[in-house]
Design a protein around this nucleic acid. Structure first.
Lengths: 172, 172
DNA sequence: AATATATGAATGAACG
DNA sequence: CGTTCATTCATATATT
């Protein structure tokens, strides 16, 4: 949809055939950008307002407790996706919160064997878990509003955290 | 649909007119839209989280309140990242499994032009693809190899690997 | 049951 | 090159 740029190839052979945009098209693009800009502004404004009212933020994690997997009935249903048992989650969280970042392959193996005693896991599962855990942790911290004390002086506008684009083209 | 198909009209007749945009300029515009889209997503997510927290306090439901964009179906899904088409994947896998490791720059160029006939692709994309392919192949080995002797049965085959994987195409 | 959210997995791109 | 990040997809689980 957005890539209509390469559509116009057929007008002439190789010479002054370029990607052209009519005023109309330009206008369309302009309004799209405009619209997004407006939406962003709106959202930022809303966000600020809400933050102002926000004071009691108790980040409670929803402890999901699911039934025992080995409760008599044979659970032969082929699971398509690994689901850590509560015990495994506890161990993983513990390790993660221990500040021990970037578990190496060796460490992964150790953790995996440890977890294996509480249910079936693979190294890949553990690896993915840490990857996801870290990524998610970062994302959730998008707005950790410390109303108590201003510790971090360096901060950007709410919407710009993710806007940074680091283009590094390896190219040829 | 915000993108009318009047895009092509201009090139048909004598109306060679018009504002031209280089690919570079198009890219800039695309990036802007993309960036705004990303920011919006981020803001919406933050918003949602905050609303959820507020709900736990007052039970008030504000509902979704971000306008437009979905009503008209004008989904600006500016693709920020290259996604190889099935045909391209097939070719790439084929080359990769051909044992020809670490394609040279020249080879990359060749492959790129070959792939270009099946969809837009840059040399950087190809380069990255091979890097990733190799790295992940190795990782899998690392995870699988140190076990016993018979666990070496897993090797990707060019023709079929993950049939259940949903292929999402992108229009051009 | 339908929708929403949480989260495991896959992968393109970037970094050192 | 190996490792890590960021984004996306698919599904398990929770909520209405």
């Amino acid at each position: 949809m957005l890539y209509s740029k390469s559509v116009i190839e057929a007008s002439a052979e190789g010479v002054l055939c370029v990607k052209v945009m009519t005023d109309e098209q330009m206008e369309v693009l302009r309004s799209q950008i405009s619209a997004y800009a407006a939406i962003c502004e709106q959202l930022v404004e809303m966000h600020r307002t809400m933050i102002a009212h926000q004071d009691s933020l108790s980040g409670m994690r929803s402890g999901h407790l699911f039934p025992d997997q080995s409760s008599g009935g044979a659970k032969i249903s082929a699971k398509q996706r690994w689901t850590p048992t509560p015990a495994q989650v506890r161990i993983l969280e513990s390790i993660f919160c221990h500040g021990n970042r970037t578990p190496s392959k060796q460490r992964i193996k150790e953790i995996t064997s440890e977890l294996s005693r509480h249910g079936q896991v693979s190294e890949t599962n553990v690896y993915n878990w840490f990857q996801n855990r870290r990524a998610r942790s970062k994302r959730k911290q998008a707005f950790a509003a410390p109303s108590t004390t201003e510790s971090e002086a360096e901060e950007e506008s709410p919407g710009e955290k993710k806007a940074k684009k680091k283009m590094h083209f390896h190219d040829s």
